[in-house]
Amino acid sequence: MAIKIAIASGKGGTGKTTVSVNLYHFINRLVTPKVQLVDCDVEEPNDLLFFKDSEEVTKETINQLIPRIDNDKCTYCRKCTEWCEYNAIVVIPPVEFAEVNGSLCHSCGACLVACEFDAMKEYPEPIGDVTFYKTQDGNGLAEGRLKIGSAMQTMLIKELKKRVPDDAEWILFDAPPGTSCPVVETVSDADYIVLVTEPTPFGLHDLKLMIEMLKDIKQPFGVIVNKAGLGNNDVYEYLEKENIEIIGKIPFDKDYASKYAAGNLLKDISPETEQRYKEIIEKLKTKL
């Protein structure tokens, strides 16, 4: 079984992608080339930007099934609207109107069971793509990309995760920011969660939300403090008080930030950076 690690953070911009891409790079070099990176931030996937020589291997459109109502069969009994948890079906008997609202439908299939007149039929609607890329080293990168306007992030992440081959030894999931459903979906079956935070009031505030969520779903985690040296000491005090382990500290470095912005994260890596990730990987190994 592959080791599954999710990289998450409450706040956006703390360095999830930086950490994910670096972990991928160093695990490949130091532990095993059978490492797979999965970009679960389906609303704005960006891991690909750091693999300039990557090649697309496969691309698949992911569909959700949305029912349509056959007006010849529909008796406007409204049973489907009572069953629909998401208020996605509008039925107005006096004017003989019945319609499914695709943007609210979660494809749960309840209305198909509810309808006694066989008036419901499902049709596929694209919600996004899952693409696999070959990278210079390692197993490669898998990415989900949500169709603009679709609200089915969680479903797309689920489908993306299903398609990740299990021949990898390590699988890294780069989570979306926040603590909402798509994040829960990303971290729910990981063996360990790396929380990336920054020592600022916002970073701490959102880290607390994240930790509460992980405690709720009973998932093990550790914290990487990125941009260490900025902000204040509140984050360290909080982690010490709560007895939460810091598995790494990455100092703030302006040159590093410019390298990130230019997409050159994996070029000319400094010995210090390398050392830090080495230590993080060693710590991770002890957690699994």
Binding site: E85, Y86, N87, A88, V90, N101, L104
Partner: peptide, 8 residues
């Protein structure tokens, strides 16, 4: 309602 309040 969680969603669909307007159409309802």
């Amino acid at each position: 309602a969680q969603g669909g309040a307007g159409t309802k």
